[in-house]
Each structure stands twice: as C-alpha cells, then as structure tokens.
Write a protein that binds this DNA or RNA. Structure first.
Lengths: 264, 264
DNA sequence: CGTCTTTTTGAATACTGTCAATTTAAGTGG
DNA sequence: CCACTTAAATTGACAGTATTCAAAAAGACG
C-alpha cells in the first residue's frame, strides 16, 4: 500500500448528503483554516481538547492522478478518505475477474467504509480525473469516537447511509428498465451537483459510458442508445459527456415510469 | 410502532458470519444462561460491570407470527434485532409502490442497521414463519459502546459487513444470468445453513418463488423455470420448497459460468 | 371438502446484449 | 503544430434471455 503524505491537513467528517438535520461531527484542528467543511466542526468539540493528537497521524492529504488508484481490493484497510477535489469511482471485482463500478464519489463524500468489515478493502477506488483526498486513520478515529459520542454517532450514520444507498441501488438494478436507470442516475447526479453549488441542469460527467453502464448494470451501447433516445424525446441535450437537461419534469417521469405500469 | 415486551431477555451481538477472526463483542447478563450465543460474550467484558444497566431497557424479546411484520418502512428506529428463531425477510418499497426483497435473515443475524442513517427504518421486516427476535435499544447500545471499544468495533464491523454484502449483491444483479443468480443464491443458503449446523445439501426454503425472484431481480416464473432446468441438469432435486443438492460441483460451476465466457 | 395461494409450464413479445463497423475525440511524438 | 495512434462514443443488425400473459396443476388452510 502506498504511503500517505502526511501534511497535517485537517479533515472533516460530515454526512454525505445534507440529510434531515442529522447530527454532524467534525475533527477540527488549528490547521482547519483551509478546511472547506469547517462549518461542521463545532458540534463535536474535539478541536480544543484533542488538537494535538488529531494533528499527528490522523490526517494526511493525498493526490491521485486521473486513472490512478487510491487503493485496491484486498489491500489492508487503515484509512478512511474524504474527497477534497475531483471525482472518483469505486469498483469491485468478482471471483471471476469481472469488474463492476459500485459508486461514484464527489467532493465531501467519505470513502472506504467497506474496509472495516474484514480489515481490508472490499473495493478499489480509481480517480476519474486528478483528485485530492484527505486520509483519516480509522484506528485513531474510532479511538476518538470513544470519548466523543457525537463523532461515534456520525460514523455510524455514515455507514448506515451507505447501506441505504446500496439498498436503493438494489431496487434500481432489480426492477428498472434502461431508461428508468439512466434517468434516475442523471437526476441523482443533478441533485448532488446542485448540493455542491453547481448547475443542476447543465454539467459535465467525468465518467465514461462504460463506467455508467457498469454502474447501472447495462452495456455501454445501451447507455449510449438511451442517451440518444432521451435526446430525441427532447428531455436533454447530449454532447459527449456534457449534459443539458431541458425537460426536468419529463426526465423525472421517465424515472418513475413504472408507477403508471403498476396501476394496471 | 408496536411496543416491545421487555422480558429482560439477554441478547448477543455477534458477526453475522463466522468471519476471519473478527473481533466479537457481547452483552451478557445474569440471564445469559439461555443465550445460545453465550460463547461470544467473554471478550467485551461488559457482563460484570454493566449488568444492571444492560438488564433494564436494553433487552426485549418479541415474537413475530408468520406473515406479520417486525417493523415497517418509515417507522421510528429505536431497536436493533437479533434473530433467535425463524426466518424473516427485509423488503423495500420504492416511491412507485413497488416492493423488493433486499435480504433474508436467519438465526443469529442482526436486523435494523439501515435505520441508523435517518432515525427511521428504511425497510420493512416480515416473518416468513413464526419467529422470535431479541431487541436491543440502539441508544443504550451506542452509549455502552462509548465505554467498550470492543463493542463499538463490533457494531462498526456489522455495518461494514452489511455494506459488503450488498456490494456483492449489486454485482450479482448487474451481471449475472438467471441461472447464475439462482445457483449463487442456493449456494449461499446452503453455506448459511451449514454454519448453523443444518445439512448443506438437503434443506427446506422458507420463502416463496416470488420472494426469491424479488430478491434476485427475476420474475417468479423465471425462478420456477430455472429450478426446473437445474433439476433437468441433475444438479438438484426440487420438491416444492424442499431442495436436495445432488451435484454441488456442478451448481458451483453454474454460478461461476461467466468465468468461462470471459476467457474468449 | 372447497377456496385461496403457490407453483409449474407454454407461447409470444420485448428489451437488452452481442457483434461489427464508423465516427469522433483525445493523447503522443515527430 | 500536425500526423498518427489510441480511446471513447454512436449506430445498426441480429440473437438471446427474461418478461408478460395465460392456463392449469398442486398444495395449504380453514
């Protein structure tokens, strides 16, 4: 496993999505000045008391170049990572050597929780573009969590949120058509971008059609065809990876198509 | 939400599967005599010191009759449950009212971790037959975890294990054919039964074809047809819900079929 | 013993995957 | 900076697998 460049860079642990008033915790040090998530730091009250410890091995910053891996399946698990910049993907290889994308990660999201179970990573993470992440020692994090109920709670919530996210993905893969899957995917992307201050209707996707297909359980050809179909339906304009949603309502209806079918 | 019959019944928190030497924790009280998982209780050392508190609201036993629900989606989340006897299923309803089975639960498994994220259950749990579960107050559990690192660790591992389990399910739903899915499902069932001391080659399934189909992302007709196909291939004998695996190797190969395809 | 649920099987349809060819973009090196 | 090479995306034709619709058989339950 690659060594971390420990730069005493602060990190924040926050809910991946701005959920319904969920409790948040944050580890804030004197270096937190540049932490873009500093706003979440107050509740846990760690900053003052444990600053020194938190400063030590707890934080590390790491750059990952486009196409490079942050970690690979099977490598020993030691750190959780928070995305500082850039987009990444998680992928999973079956016993048969078949790889599948299991998630896309955007700024502020937490990566690595699947490693807790076995002490080694269950998936690999690859950067879709040059990216930066903050590393948090899991061992120290759980140790701190023992004295900070809020932090413990937040960690649990992160994991549970991951579980719920995957549950919804199971439903998508089990029931939905190609059009419903892609519509749902685009709407989800749109929302996540909006939550980060970007346009929700006009954006650039960082992943290939193959990545999307792998994520949605479709072939890249089907993804491409479905994009074309959406364009023909005037739901959106596609120019390579640039997307412009022109009919949000229509796209939402496509994602909920099944609702109508079910009525009969 | 239905009230719990608090019977001061002890409960054990253990890894769902006998993983590779993973740390285990257990809350053991003086009532632990009848706890079938008592063997796991030593490591956490909670028994002696916090016995009284653990005895209070922490444990409750609850019976769930066949077809009845333990809890429903959206209900406030307060307890984790450990299956004492009987089999149950988790299901998830989409915005469109479409229900899907997301898991089957056997003795010793922990239910409810998806509720941590939002403070309300993300799925519903239904008993496939008369069942008994032990309830653990999540609030008290996390409070205890603050003073017992081992317990905290175990909780995290449970959640992570759930994440990994679902990841593998995503791969199955995204890539595998009906035959591969059913073979994988049967092999998984077989292993879980074996781990509980039952025959791994001769067992009774508690779920309907519709349940299996919903879980595997197939229609009940396809499931039925695939069972028939397996029987014709002499991989197993099917009599309603009774299964006799006659060619374990063959069934395993079917589950790994894709391995051969990928070589060309 | 009758009703309801579950399961099985058939036939036709529909959707997505596979194979293949082309176009377009991106990255590399002279 | 352009030619060249490689990667990504689009589109078509066809095949294959699973779904849908339908009917009948077999159990389960009161």
């Amino acid at each position: 496993m690659t060594a971390l460049e420990v730069l005493a860079q602060p990190i924040t642990v926050m809910p991946a999505r701005s959920g319904a008033g969920a409790a948040v915790a944050c580890v804030s040090t004197s270096h937190c000045t540049h932490c873009h998530l500093r706003q979440w730091c107050a509740p846990s009250g760690i900053a003052s008391t444990d600053g020194d410890r938190a400063d030590s091995l707890m934080f590390g910053r790491r750059r990952v170049r486009a196409g490079q891996r942050l970690y690979r399946e099977g490598e020993p698990f030691k750190y959780l990572y928070e995305v500082r910049s850039g987009n990444l993907k998680s992928s999973l290889t079956t016993a048969q050597g078949l790889a599948r994308v299991s998630a896309f990660h955007m700024t502020g999201e937490l990566i690595g929780l699947d490693g807790v179970a076995e002490g080694q990573h269950a998936s690999s993470v690859t950067a879709l573009e040059d990216a930066e992440v903050c590393a948090v020692s899991y061992a120290l994090l759980t140790e701190l969590a023992l004295s900070h109920a809020q932090l413990q709670q937040t960690l649990m919530q992160h994991m549970s949120r991951e579980i719920v996210r995957e549950l919804r993905m199971l439903v998508l893969l089990g029931n939905m058509t190609a059009e419903e899957r892609l519509a749902t995917f685009l709407l989800s992307l749109s929302q996540r971008l909006a939550a980060r201050g970007y346009s929700s209707s006009d954006f650039h996707m960082r992943m290939t059609r193959a990545d999307i297909g792998s994520y949605l359980g479709l072939t890249l050809e089907t993804v491409s065809r479905t994009f074309s179909a959406f364009q023909k339906l005037r739901l959106l304009e596609v120019d390579q990876r640039h997307i412009r949603i022109t009919d949000l309502g229509g796209l939402t209806r496509v994602g909920d198509q099944r609702a109508h079918k079910e009525l009969h």
